[in-house]
Design a binder for these strands. Structure first.
Lengths: 335, 335
DNA sequence: CTGAAAGCGCTTACAG
DNA sequence: CTGAAAGCGCTTACAG
């Protein structure tokens, strides 16, 4: 069944025109119910498959949305991005679009090479998932193509971006610690490394401020160098009762370190993470953390990109999606 | 720059025909070098982008290869599949094809629904990455479309499949244990759960046979129930000196269990895994394990699918790609 | 070396 | 309700 059946083939068998077949198969006006049924039945029987390429050519749309993920985000722990893609693809599907993953090789990023799919007009919009270099961002913006940033943003303010509410998430989880009696709360993360580490720090800080807790310099503990490589953490001389870590992986490392130094978690000190990724449940004890709302982020992203494909003028700006605290076993209440 | 420049636009500016433009842009015979250069330069300046949809329509090919991954393989630990996809996409790219991921929703798998991309003729071949239900396999095979299985196979023997050499990998790693003096070696895995657990067991068994070591029933330890959920493992009364685990995650669980029972790894007993996934380095000590050769598997898969797209008659059968032992700290030599 | 004609499979006006 | 004509952007085969 090499199935190269076309509308014309169906039309000929039925002695009608291919225009009529087209109308019938697309449920359009202008064909009698009876004929429509007959056409549909025959199409099925002949194993007809609609050729979208032809439609694409007619209306100059590819019905593809390309999700670009920088290669360096596809490491071991980052099945996060595959999940995000899955959610996006599912929602695009409902709108009749296809999601296409493009993993951006590091060298293409350096050489400012756009994906071939762009040059071949096989895409109507871009979703940039994960932050590439500044230069690459500019390149993407210079191209007249609907574009939405996902999971990061740019200082440039005429961009549309969907991000997790890092600030609010860290604020909330720090609040929960304080509500459980913690007054000596440290933050773990290099504030100058990424915007999300910084924003999470600020949420933590706001919580301290609101509770009139003084921010001690030695309670802000760096976890990585400028290039993102993890470093040995500097534990303060006077230990806090709780640590707010900028991500689950760092919470995992911190707990290993604490154990080595003889501290038990959560008996001696509490630790919370962020992301609810694989490290959250790999760590003993399982981590109390902030879960990112992937579904909601995907929904927003798809809505934005679709609206922009319909009307390139619309703007959404930065939209932060709130996460949710997942309570597990790494926090102890203090009386 | 709404860039709807077509070959015709270029042709008109230069007072030539669009046929000539087509030839020039495709580096075909029949245009003077001089004119060719002129055309290319102008095309660049006008921001021309080639429209592959038109070409696709002409020659009835989509230049897309769809990589289907059953939804249930996209869980936390499975960034493995994203890596495999990345390798495949890269190699397809070199051949002028696009890789398209389709995550097969569980319900589509149950209801035997093929991806929309198939019905819309936007794909020239399928790569099935990860084993779906028997019924879904049959469905895929009933469709006249080049198809390659990746990372699993089917008893049906007229299929083309690229798999890791589970048998050989387990054989080799067990050999290495025995060479280091281990004589009491157990295997951990439910032999009736998946074909790869079974094949790895057989490789382990062959190594025992070759070394004239008797296989003790209590040394074959089940790790999961029929539905794949992990169960409490039954440690034998007389402990072996080494355990061959069917995967790194189970090695990780086993070590946790051993620690709880007071055994230290590798001092009291050695443990090896399989896969070299995230668990291999998350576990303390880091695991000696078998690394799957993703690059080689991807190369084979792409070669097979491309050859089949050119000539649907070619057959490759099952091809097993050998892995490589990664030596780390979970094994101690015995004098 | 160059180009007019026909066609890939569909849809959009428009006419009957 | 039905269909002839034209066109989407390109390429192939053929003629000059």
């Amino acid at each position: 069944m090499k199935s190269n059946v076309t509308m014309k083939d169906i039309a000929e068998k039925l002695n009608v025109s291919s225009v009529t077949v087209s109308k019938a198969l697309n449920d359009k006006e202008g064909v009698s119910e009876e004929l429509k049924e007959k056409i549909k039945t025959l199409a099925d029987k002949m194993g007809y498959r609609y050729n979208t390429m032809a439609k694409s050519m007619k209306d100059g749309k590819s019905y593809n949305v390309c999700v670009i993920i920088p290669e360096r985000y596809t490491g071991m722990t980052q099945s996060f991005y595959l999940k995000v893609y899955q959610a996006i693809a599912q929602i695009l599907e409902d709108r009749g679009y296809y999601g296409i993953i493009h993993i951006l090789p590091n060298e293409d990023e350096d050489q400012l090479k756009l994906p071939r799919i762009y040059h071949e007009r096989r895409v109507d919009g871009f979703i940039m998932l994960g932050q590439p270099s500044k230069e690459y961002i500019e390149l993407m913006q210079s191209v007249e193509m609907p574009l939405v940033f996902l999971d990061f943003y740019d200082e440039n303010d005429n961009v549309d971006a969907v991000i997790t509410d890092n600030f609010y998430g860290a604020y909330e989880i720090t609040n929960s610690l304080i509500q459980q009696g913690h007054k000596e709360v440290a933050y773990v993360g290099n504030l100058f490394s990424t915007s999300s580490i910084q924003d999470r720090f600020l949420g933590y800080y706001k919580s301290l401020l609101e509770h009139k807790i003084h921010l001690k310099q030695e309670y802000v503990i760096s976890d990585r160098d400028e290039r993102g490589a993890f470093i040995e953490m500097d534990l303060p001389d006077q230990m806090p009762t709780a640590f707010v870590c900028n991500c689950d992986q760092v919470a995992h490392l911190l707990i290993e370190r604490l154990n080595k130094e003889g501290y038990r978690v959560p008996e001696d000190c509490s630790v919370v993470g962020f992301d609810n990724d694989i490290y959250a449940t790999l760590t003993t004890p399982h981590l109390t953390t902030v879960e990112v709302d992937i579904e909601e982020m995907a929904k927003n992203t798809v809505k934005f990109i679709c609206d922009k494909m319909d009307n390139p003028e619309v703007k959404f700006g930065r939209v932060a999606v709130k996460g949710k605290i997942i309570y597990r076993d790494s926090v102890k209440a203090i009386k």
